[in-house]
Amino acid sequence: MRPIDPTEFAKGPTAGGSARVSEAVARALRARRGDAESAPQRPRDPAPSRAAYRMNRLWLTPSFRFFLRRIAPVAAVAACIGLWFAPQDNREAFMGQVMAIKAEVQNRPEFMVKLMAIDGASGELSEDIREVMAQDFPVSSFDLDLPGLLAQVESLDAVESAGIHVRAGGILQVDIVERTPAVVWRSDLGLEMLDAEGHRVAALESRLDRPDLPLIAGEGADRAVEEALAILANAGPLTPRLRGLVRVGERRWNIVLDRDQEILLPEIKPLGALAQVVALDQAKDLLGRDVATVDMRRPTRPTVRLTEAAQDELKRLRGVELGVSYR
């Protein structure tokens, strides 16, 4: 017997079949194919699974949200960078790259300093400055240590103050205010020029190099240059005869004149004493006489020491007066 093909019956109602038969046949066919379709369809369960529910709640937790949206990306990027930088080679390569770029930018011609201009310094001093700074040109302005250079320049004795800056056009501008020598100081170490404040300016080979400057001597004279200059300014008519000033015991001055005459000034108010001496000199021509020293250490009682010859002469004159001869 020929087996019946169920699809033969499964015609639509229009084609002479029965709707209910075709429905039944379709169900049978589905069952034969092994579809789970034949089971009555269960209504969809709207409930979330436990895991989905928990995930949902977790996602709604503000701290977790903040962590995942703000902290986690940052941490991930940081971790990536950190991992890449962990090997030494990568670090070195990166640093090399950075240094190369930096050098390239710094060595651009815009930033190069090609020469140095020194203003306000004499020839010798500017030589000294160049020597001290020992800067090779051209150099990038990033490599210049301007404060350091400034300190170096200001460490020179002859420089009172200095300014240093990089001028447009790649010029290192050094502005100098030089110290002006006011006196020559003779000390154990030789001749030195000092400015009005007693600061060393330069050494001097010979007194004859600067005959225009007054001479001071003695230990501690450099600390009293101001007083010395005041005395010199007030010397008045004595100036042509003045040879120099000597600091005695680091406290008072002696004025040394030619013909080995000396004026011993007191420790306090030396100018008053000096004025007294000048007045005496003008009135009595004191210093024109045969006087070795005029001792003004006690201004109320000026004392005069005569030279050897003058003393003898004085004795002789006294003897004549008294009719006595000492010889």
Binding site: P46, P48, N56, R57, L60
Partner: peptide, 10 residues
């Protein structure tokens, strides 16, 4: 059912 309601309200 409680889970459904709570999740939707959340």
């Amino acid at each position: 059912a409680i889970r459904t309601a709570v999740q939707a309200a959340q």
